[in-house]
Amino acid sequence: MNRTQLLACHDLIKPYIHKTAVLTSRLINAAIGAEVFFKCENFQRMGAYKMRGATHAILKLTPEAREKGVVTHSSGNFAQALSLSAQMLGVKAHIVMPTTAPEVKKIGVQEYGGSIYICEPTLEARNTMAREIQEKTGATFLHPSNDLDVILGQGTAALELLEEYPDLNAIFVPVGGGGLIAGTAFAAAAMGGNCRVIGTEPFEVDDAYRSLQSGKIESNLTTNTIADGLKTQLGSNTLPVILEYVNTIIRVEEEEIIAAMRLIWERMKIIVEPSSAVALAGLYRERSKFKDQKVGIIISGGNVDLGNLPF
């Protein structure tokens, strides 16, 4: 993937997405000791950056493939993104969701016209059900994070951020399946600056941290984290990008995630989901290393179950 492909992707999806705001907070800058620029993908259509990749992936399908629809498995944000993108483009969306998916995200999928299929909360169950739907309907399977067209679409958030602030020293992103960090890493490399891309992850689901060390896809034995969007593991397309472009993944405790989430809600007056707060938590934890630098944070989404807040 190169700069030309990234710019072409951005041009293709522009009519269907929002160019989201970049916000700052003097209080957070003072607490970190750096200039921090928040790329607010919580303001994106359907409330998360995943709208970008989902839209790009559907737009890249042939007319024949679009006729037969798309299928994915997702606990939330990609499920909503694919449903809304499909609705806008006149495509049928089949969404496999685990029993543990937040209610707010199931409601979102239904509102956007996606057909929900509930399965057990295991990767095997998700894959099996998605395959069955594929065989029955002829729909194209689009992986939430491991599809190259999805990854390229996700990179457009960082592209917009770097177009606005080309002198950033680093961009912090949360890591789940790796689609956002892979796309961000492509964008940072394509823009040709010296911007490092740094992953952040809960200790409770630190598979990407371990994958970076071992060079192979690691799994989590437990997924006991408030950051529900980060419970998935890396894929065959995301890991090589991370190994090539990313050399740091910072892990954070659950209390740090909640504190960062609360800080953003209280001080910036915006709604962010726990997975998004992981990036600020990581920067705060390692703030001494970024003193006096310019740092971007991609706020990945704002789809929160308001009946289940940690504060």
Rank of each mutant, 00 (worst) to 15 (best):
R45F: 05
S75Y: 01
A185I: 09
A208G: 13
Q233W: 15
K269A: 04
N127P: 05
L306S: 03
A227E: 12
I28W: 02
K294T: 04
Q134S: 13
V150C: 06
L148W: 14
Q134V: 13
L168C: 07
T225H: 08
L243N: 09
L263F: 15
R210Q: 14
E67L: 11
E103V: 11
N146S: 11
T128Y: 14
K289D: 08
L123Y: 13
E255V: 10
E254P: 06
Y112D: 00
L221P: 11
M191H: 06
A259S: 14
E160S: 08
K60R: 12
Y284R: 09
T100N: 00
N42F: 10
A86F: 03
I181G: 00
S288E: 15
T200Y: 00
A158M: 07
N2Y: 13
V96F: 07
F78P: 00
T222W: 12
L162V: 04
Q87I: 02
V91D: 02
A190V: 11
R285T: 12
P15Q: 06
L89R: 03
T140N: 14
T72Q: 08
A54V: 07
I242E: 12
K14D: 08
R267Y: 13
V70C: 00
T184Q: 11
T222P: 06
F38I: 05
A185P: 08
D11Q: 13
A57K: 01
Y117G: 02
T222S: 13
F141E: 10
N194G: 15
D149A: 10
I198K: 03
G192S: 12
V304G: 01
P98D: 09
G296K: 03
M261N: 08
V71Y: 05
F311V: 05
N29Q: 13
G296S: 06
G302D: 00
K289L: 13
R45C: 06
V91G: 01
G114D: 04
I198V: 02
G114Y: 02
R196V: 03
Y49N: 08
T4M: 11
L123V: 15
H10L: 15
S85D: 00
K289Q: 12
A65F: 05
V246R: 07
T128G: 08
D149C: 15
V205A: 12
C9Y: 06
L230N: 05
T99L: 14
Q213H: 11
G138Y: 10
V295C: 06
A158D: 09
S275H: 08
G215M: 08
V173H: 07
A93M: 02
T62P: 11
G307C: 04
P240L: 03
L152R: 06
L243Y: 07
Q213M: 14
A130N: 10
I249M: 04
